[in-house]
Amino acid sequence: MIDFCNVSKVFNTDLLKKDFHALKSVTFNIPEGKTIGFLGANGAGKTTSLKIAMDFIRPTSGEIKYNESLGKNKLEAFKNIGYLPERPFFYPHLTGLEFCHYMGALTDLSKAEIESQVNVWAIKFKIDFALNRHIKNYSKGMLQRIGFLATLLHNPKLIILDEPLAGLDPIGRKELKDIIVQLRDEGKTVFFSSHIISDVEEICDSVIFLKDGEVVFNGSVDQIMKDNIKPETRISYFDGDSLLTEVIPNNKKEEYLSKLLKDGKEIVSLQAEKPTLEEIFYNVKKN
């Protein structure tokens, strides 16, 4: 839906300081109907990439192409994009409902359409009880929820979220992740940046990993897991009342299993030993 073509961004904030290359010839595309995780450590260039995608800042070189499925030009494309910035802090003196009306009106929705959308999403986001409160009285989680709600008001095809789960408590994270999964099931394209790899592993079809402004991996989660699977098997079994777990090299698996069965142990599970996405990217970062 959006193509990044050799996008580079150089910041020079001070004449006496060296240029900072935030992005180095970044190329990838956001495919339709997928949930894509945009990973990278702090300062890897994730937010800069998203700001360039949304035309808040211009690239030093390269270009961003919006597919025709989004619209013929940038403004038309933005009608079909919902964007939530990182750690938003909205107008403190407006109520949540007024804020939703503001955002809805800017996407050409009528009052009735805004109200019906707010009614649906406010319940899903569990923010309906606070819609008439001033935003200055919202907690961080509530701000994230009202921002997410406003992002979805106009039923966008592509949803871009910058660190949507950062700073939320486990329950809040779970609830927002459930909504992202629901959006994916409805056929929406969700592109979200995060440095919490376990969240991405849980809900994404594919990942793009940025390191020091460069794309170091772009592919499906399944593929990267398969490529990094270890030649080991994790065996869990009961020894009397104790549940024990052993990791055995694959070439000794059968021999070990026979021994356990012969000794009358109860096998509970047998699993290929696979690293978490976090471990894989930790190694990428180290290398």
Binding site: M54, F56, F89, M103
Partner: peptide, 13 residues
């Protein structure tokens, strides 16, 4: 406060 992003990420010149 990043509110400008919420506005100009919509079809608003």
């Amino acid at each position: 406060s990043r509110t400008v992003y919420m506005i100009i990420s919509r079809p608003v010149p």
